[in-house]
């Protein structure tokens, strides 16, 4: 019973490695969750953001022991949902995905916002995405896509 038990994308699992290991590394290397990107490993870019109990967290700043008995969602799990579909369509409509590296984190940041606030203002969207650096888009397309998803996906959140 020494392992770290948690739920990953709806499935129970147990991690037998060190409690000091970094969630980012464990998700990528042990669980093959490659949507979780490493941009800086210092909590300053959001590329590795995941949802822990529905809350947006940078997985580079989490040690495994902290997730014991918690529930983690990555894009690998989220992409099966209708909410994801709505966001994906809104992003596609505005060509908001350029290099793509920030996008999984960005999508989860959008979900974290919309799940608490289904009809955000632009300012609220910008605040919610402010820890997710995108160097390609200048953010307009992404912000507008999240606004559109909220509008079009009415009822999903």
């Amino acid at each position: 019973m020494n392992g770290i038990r948690f739920r990953l994308n709806g499935k129970d699992t147990c991690y037998e490695g060190s409690a000091a290991d970094r969630l980012l590394d464990v998700l990528r290397d042990e669980y093959d969750m490659k949507s979780v990107k490493c941009g800086c490993k210092e909590g300053e870019c959001g590329a590795c953001a995941v949802l822990i109990d529905g809350v947006l967290i940078n997985s580079c700043c989490v040690a495994m022991g902290a997730v014991d008995s918690h529930e983690i969602l990555t894009v690998e799990g989220y992409r099966e949902t209708a909410r994801f579909e709505a966001l994906s369509k809104a992003f596609a409509d505005l060509s908001a995905v350029q290099c793509g590296f920030c996008i999984p984190g960005m999508i989860l940041a959008a979900e974290a916002l919309l799940s608490k606030n289904a009809h955000p203002t632009e300012q609220e969207v910008r605040t919610a995405l402010s820890g997710n650096i995108c160097r390609c888009t200048g953010y307009n397309a992404i912000v507008n896509a999240v606004m559109n998803a909220a509008k079009e996906g009415d009822g999903l959140w």
């Binding site: 909590g43 959001g46 953001a49 809350v55 947006l56 967290i57 940078n58 700043c61 989490v62 940041a109 974290a112 605040t127 919610a128 402010s130 820890g131 997710n132």
Partner: peptide, 9 residues
């Protein structure tokens, strides 16, 4: 402080 993901943790 920082941004939402940091404030959440």
């Amino acid at each position: 402080i920082a941004a939402p993901a940091i404030r959440n943790a």
